[in-house]
C-alpha cells in the first residue's frame, strides 16, 4: 500500500469518511466526526500505521489532511498530493 493509500485508509477508518472523498483539503472544519477526541485517535492511528512518533508540539493544530502530511514529511515520509479521486 503506498503512503497516500495508507493515509486515506487510516483517516477513513477513524473518521468514517469514504476513502474516495479524502483530499488534502479535508479538515476538522469540513468533517463532523473530526472532533478533538477523534483527532487524538487519528494521530495515534497514523503513528501506528506509519511506525513513527510525530512531533508533539504540532499535534493540536494539525486538524487537516494537508497539515498531517506536513507532520509526516517532518519524519521523512512523503505522501503524494491527494486530489479529488485519482
Amino acid at each position: 500500500m503506498d503512503n497516500s493509500r495508507k493515509l486515506r485508509s487510516t483517516i477513513s477508518a477513524i473518521l468514517g469518511v469514504p476513502e474516495d472523498q479524502i483530499t488534502d483539503d479535508l479538515s476538522s472544519e469540513t468533517v463532523d466526526t473530526w472532533d478533538s477526541l477523534n483527532h487524538i485517535n487519528l494521530i495515534s492511528a497514523i503513528e501506528q500505521e506509519f511506525g513513527v512518533t510525530l512531533a508533539t508540539d504540532d499535534l493540536a493544530d494539525s486538524q487537516s489532511v494537508r497539515k498531517l502530511k506536513a507532520l509526516l514529511a517532518d519524519r521523512g515520509i512523503e505522501v503524494k498530493a491527494i486530489a479529488n479521486s485519482e
Binding site: 477508518a13 477513524i14 468514517g16 501506528q48
Partner: peptide
C-alpha cells in the same frame, strides 16, 4: 490490534 484494524473490524 491497531486502532485502524479495530475500527475497520467494528464496522
Amino acid at each position: 490490534p491497531t486502532i485502524v484494524n479495530v475500527a475497520k473490524a467494528s464496522r
